[in-house]
Design a protein around this nucleic acid. Structure first.
Lengths: 315, 315
DNA sequence: AACGCTCAATACTTTATGGATATGGTGATG
DNA sequence: CATCACCATATCCATAAAGTATTGAGCGTT
């Protein structure tokens, strides 16, 4: 049995007339009669009673009609559903962020924009450190991840550098280095002036990247800072500075956190410049349509939106 | 698109392998590849990613697979459902009975037997007088009706005489005619002995049939009974006799009703013999499978049961 | 009662297409 | 680098769907 039989059957049932149904189907009457007959013989019972004025559904035909209609409708619906999935309008996507990357407004903007453009996609957002996220992307548990500096570079994984963010020095309020400058705007402090200050560092097994540049810049200036404490993440880092344990540097997007306890200062005289990148990680061979839409929207926001609703402009 | 495409798609999706799927389908690999490709081009997206070790579902294919399976399953289910309807195993039937016919045990037996044999058929049992039921059968509102004597014979309607039932004379307990015989078994009374008794008759516009024979038999014996009362149905008839209004005759199957107030007696010396028929009424061109099963079961109970479950004996 | 009309079925031809066979191309594997 | 395992392509054939012409059956009409 083929869908053709069902289409023909429904047409005849609706027209109650072989010849008119054939016209409506764009075929001649004899082949239609034949196909109906073939369907009847496959089903094992008659669908129609033939009258000189047309045809009439039998009890079996009456029972079959709604079923046939439902099948034809679901064939149509199935194609639409699957097309939506293929276009990435439906389905799911798993994205990871490190907590320090999550602090940057770009990340939340990007995710919000995607969820608005693709409201029917189930969005799984998870948290982890750079090493974990990279591994999860590499073996497909995540389709994308936002992190700061890459910590491992598995084959087949792309690290897309999105931006560099300035690093700011943070000191506890009332610290001697902050007293000298109280003008408007962000104060500026020379890196060499922190040579004798105790330093708080964020350093975990999986995230050594962000502070390498700081230590190297200090070495260039001829000193090695004293490490007062190492903490597992950036927020605790600021808390420690606020508590007076030492000073530290954080990405500029953290500015505002504990603002009454901590002073944020720009750094001068650092070489290499102290910057915190935001990196988008994804598999080079990513095929998931939802992921491809997400990547497109993230990397080229304008194009992404256009592609998501191509017909809006034309109407 | 045809069901073939869905069948092929599901086979390939399950085998994850074109060549093996082709084997399972009993065709060669190239035509299978072509049909899959045709399906993809009709849907507008790729269902599979081709690898050197086999094929893999795309996101669109993954979404399409359960839909395709459901469609194929519902094609199967539709055929089964409609076949059951065509065989009269599912559907509905409307049957009417007159209240006097309903009193005969054959009717309830027949209906119970049908409902047991065809439990999935919706059975509409309705009540009416012979004229009403005949009309409803004639124009298709009923598929069958049980009544006593036919009162009208529309073209295209078959009146199947099922049985003749003896008519019994009923008299109030203590009536003079009953006093003479008090042996075991049903007493017997000569029709001519009721010549002077007042008679209660059931007679409605639509049901004149049952008492015509009684009056004619009396005329043969040379008397015309006096009509003491006319009542609309048989049960009230018995109540009137019990109340002493007069005597009457009823079909033998009524025996037992008001047994402590009324005496049932066999009648001798009547010509024509006083009998009450049970008549099954149905359309000559009845096509409904449920109705045909009902008629078969009613007219030929043994054959009906056999046909309803043809496979039981063979297993 | 005969005729004509309508519509489905039948007989036969044509066409389209699904399937078979043979072969080519490509990426993984040892 | 050669081989293997698969899928894709090309070509041909057989099947079956569609087309054409005609028959046949049932109904209404005169």
């Amino acid at each position: 049995m083929e869908l053709r039989h069902l289409r023909y059957f429904v047409a005849v049932a609706e027209a109650r007339h072989m010849t008119r149904a054939a016209e409506r189907l764009g075929i001649q009457q004899p082949p239609l009669s034949q196909q109906i007959k073939a369907l009847e013989s496959e089903l094992g019972f008659e669908l129609f009673r033939r009258h000189p004025r047309g045809v009439e559904l039998t009890a079996g035909g009456r029972a079959y009609l709604p079923e046939a209609r439902a099948i034809l409708a679901s064939v149509h619906v199935a194609a639409i559903k699957a097309t939506r999935a293929a276009k990435g309008l439906q389905g799911s996507i798993a994205v990871g962020v490190t907590s320090s990357a999550a602090a940057h407004p770009l990340i939340s903007q990007t995710i919000r924009a995607y969820r608005e453009s693709y409201p029917d996609v189930n969005f799984d957002l998870s948290n982890g450190n750079a090493a974990e996220l990279t591994e999860e992307v590499a073996d497909g548990r995540l389709q994308a991840a936002f992190l700061r500096a890459p910590v491992a570079r598995p084959a087949n994984v792309v690290f897309h550098h999105m931006l560099n963010e300035e690093m700011l020095l943070i000191l506890p309020v009332g610290h001697s280095l902050t007293g000298t400058r109280t003008g408007v705007g962000t104060p500026r402090i020379a890196l060499k002036s922190i040579a004798d200050e105790p330093l708080v560092l964020v350093r975990r097994p999986g995230a050594p990247g962000l502070y390498a540049n700081l230590l190297q810049a200090c070495r260039h200036l001829g000193f090695t800072p004293r490490i007062a404490a190492e903490v597992p993440h950036m927020l605790l880092n600021i808390s420690f500075v606020a508590a007076g344990v030492g000073i530290s540097v954080v990405p500029a997007s953290m500015r505002g956190i504990l603002h009454d306890k901590v002073v944020y200062c720009r750094i001068s005289g650092a070489d290499p410049a102290l910057v915190a990148p935001i990196t988008l990680v994804y598999r080079a061979d990513e095929e998931s349509p939802t992921a491809k839409n997400f990547l497109r929207l993230t990397i080229q926001p304008e194009h992404g939106r256009e592609a998501a609703r191509p017909s809006r402009r034309q109407r």
